[in-house]
Design a protein around this nucleic acid. Sequence first.
RNA 1: GCGAAAGUGGCGGAAUUGGCAGACGCGCUGGACUUAGGAUCCAGUGGCCCAAAGCCGUGUGGGUUCGAGUCCCACCUUUCGCACCA
Length: 847
Amino acid sequence: MQYRPTEIEPKWQQRWAEARVAEIDVSAPGDKLYMLNMFPYPSGDLHVGHGRNYILGDAVYRFFRMRGLAALNPMGWDAFGLPAENAAIKRGTHPREWTLGNIGRMKKQFARWGILYDWSKEIASCEPEYYKWNQWLFLQLYKRGLAYRGTAPVNWCPQDQTVLANEQVIDGRCDRCGATVEQRELSQWFLKITEYADRLDAGLDTLEHWPEKVKLMQRNWIGRSRGADVDFTVPALNKPIRVFTTRPDTIFGATFMVLAPEHPDVATLIAEHPEREELEQWITGVRNQSNLERQEAGKEGRFTGKFAVNPFTNEEIPIWLGNFVLPQYGTGAIMSVPAHDQRDFEFARQYKLPLRLVVRPADGGDTPNVDDLTEAFTFKDETGRAVNSGLLDGLTVPKAIDRIIDEIERRGIGKGTVRYRLRDWLISRQRYWGTPIPMIYCEQCGLVPVPEEQLPVTLPLDVPFTGREGNPLAKHEAFVNVTCPQCNAPAKRETDTMDTFVDSSWYYARFITPRDGTKIFDSSLVNRWLPVDQYIGGIEHAILHLLYARFITRTLHDMGLVEFEEPFTRLFNQGVITKEGYKDAHGSWVSPTEVTWRDEKPYRGEEPLTAEVTKMSKSRLNVVPPDELIEKYGADTERVYTLFIAPPEKEAAWSDEGVIGAFRFLGRVWHMGVQLAELREGSGDPSKVIRKMHQTIDAVTRRIERFEFNTAISSLMELSNAIGEALAGGTDPIGVRQAYEALLQLLHPFAPHVTEELWTMFGHEGFVLTSTWPTANPELMQEDTVVVAVQVNGKLRGQVEVPSPPEEQLVMERVRGSEKIRQWIEGKDVIKVIYVPGKLVNLVVKG
RNA sequence: GCGAAAGUGGCGGAAUUGGCAGACGCGCUGGACUUAGGAUCCAGUGGCCCAAAGCCGUGUGGGUUCGAGUCCCACCUUUCGCACCA
């Protein structure tokens, strides 16, 4: 009987679905376990690279189930977003149709992979029954002052015709389409994530089971800095200018001040400037540049002609404008200490501004001459000591910081502060396919929230998609023109939609009561099932989704809706799957079907191509579609190979040849099963294979718990090899069968279909899935004999075999009796014997 | 520039607390069965050496130790993240 996966896999997929094996009653009592794969954007067809994420999750889920846990494993769709709208513009299909079509195809693909989700909990964020609660959440945030409309310089993507959050700008480019982002001053909707900066930062310390890397990335993104706000009086203004500095200890070295061109006092300061017009032109020019352009331009500045007074030296210091001072950070104004800050140093050298040294090496090392410096002389810690700084002289940097903050506060000219790099979350999008923001503009009443009982504000479906002239919603008369809920006067509806990251920032709570039309979720059930015990998804969400979700969870906590503050207890980020792709001279990707090989180099006709191993993706034309693979080898083979290929957190290179190894392995398991089901003969001692079975149960259990699927599978291959040897050696079939059935159970999370088939072949009722995970007997794992390695002066010189458990005396007797080892110690003094129980003996000899 | 992680055969990768480096798999070589093999099965496979014995071998150089892939110091390379955040 041949192993034909295509004949057995659909059958089991159907049986699991019919038995609704993954459906969980959340109100039933008992232990809970909530595991979750990040819900996907329904972009279309899934390839084997996507498969890694879901296959991994399913293996873990099946493992939990076999250990008797009522694990909840739901799935849904992050169904709003730009690609649907772009597809509509390009092909004329409605975003909704396009999205639902993709969802249908992806669901089928999940089924073909043998993945079990509780589909009774399915949600799609583009459905009114879901996004109604998005709008409701927005209104609660608005009520608490956490959602606001504000004018700020924002990132505008000219390609996608919308604004973007800071988190969505990568190297100055749109993370969706790659177009260079422009700065624009626009009025937009923001969520006040900055109000939670301290809690989001502090909370990272409680996330013991998150990858350090992700926590570090979030910490850097939040960018907490301790320092001080200090007022510098400005005679030309009738008020001081406040600066923020993390190095208040260097204030005696502050020889000038620099303001961002956007600073509110700039206009007054330059009002009387003799070259005001030229200066204003320069300011406008800088303001229109993006951060990236400013950096590329190098440091540029202009003197305002006015001065500020350094509160500690009482000197008048010039006030400059500088393109390197960021308006959004701190107060948009800095005190410049060119001797001890690299940026200030560069600026001072460029414009010939004075430097003053106020920190010297604490260890008494040489203090350089200010004029000889080639770079700023920075000291952040105890390595620096204040000098030329009046009351601070002689103090180390940390002590000087504390001392000067005391003094600043005593004099009432500022205070110690903590600042964050994090900025508020811009959630407006000038696009159609998203959750409408439930706000109304009334000429009489101003901004009016849509009353909760009128939710949802339904996204109209009858709009044209031209790809021109902005958001199509704005042209939908019936949507835009409303009456004011307060005064009944004609009013206009907000036409911006929400960033889809709002949808995904709380969906994990909705899975508990997905159909409840009366509330966002049931707090008591959510408090029972959440936080998510095991969250699985890509590292690309390290900041975006995971930070937003942590923020929204805290707001829900503060509203009294949930008891916890962190939504995900354990986080696992799987690595991407890579494959070779081919590029032509213009950098365009070339389909592998066009590639020919000569001298082991790729060509398209006569044109040489370059090969590059990159992330598997449609745009790089290097995807492996699962359909052919499943047709040829089966889903179980793809599953086993995907998990065997590399440690799951690592990047892994897909190899078409490698797949065959997994297929052969399952084929051998199959053939052994067929053989064993009939076998009656054999009388050999099965203790060896039974021992291997116990060792494997122990190893596989530990390895799955630690997400070491690649080595878990390799131990299963070892067990299968041992069973094969036992069969060939005429071992008693009862013992071999016992080991084989354990193999089927241990293999089930990885290869669910073939194990179910063989399980029934062995006469079992019910699924392997609902059987009990085997347990290892530590006593039966012990070997009868132990091979002890013998080293002489650390070099391996032989081995001795002794009965288990090994006794040192007997081991030494055997060592002395071994001719092979004797030659290395003959005529020498053994001065020391190091015995590592059961493993090795090392003889230290001399002479 | 700052921060983090990682360097092991032809390849993917193994190696509790320092204790027999290269598990498991791919590929390759030889063989079996075959009209045939891209199917399957068996054997071999880090390097030097015909082979054995032996020696060498985990990015480079040093150190600690009876013993180092693992610990310490310096360096090199690669990948990732942040990037004028005062």
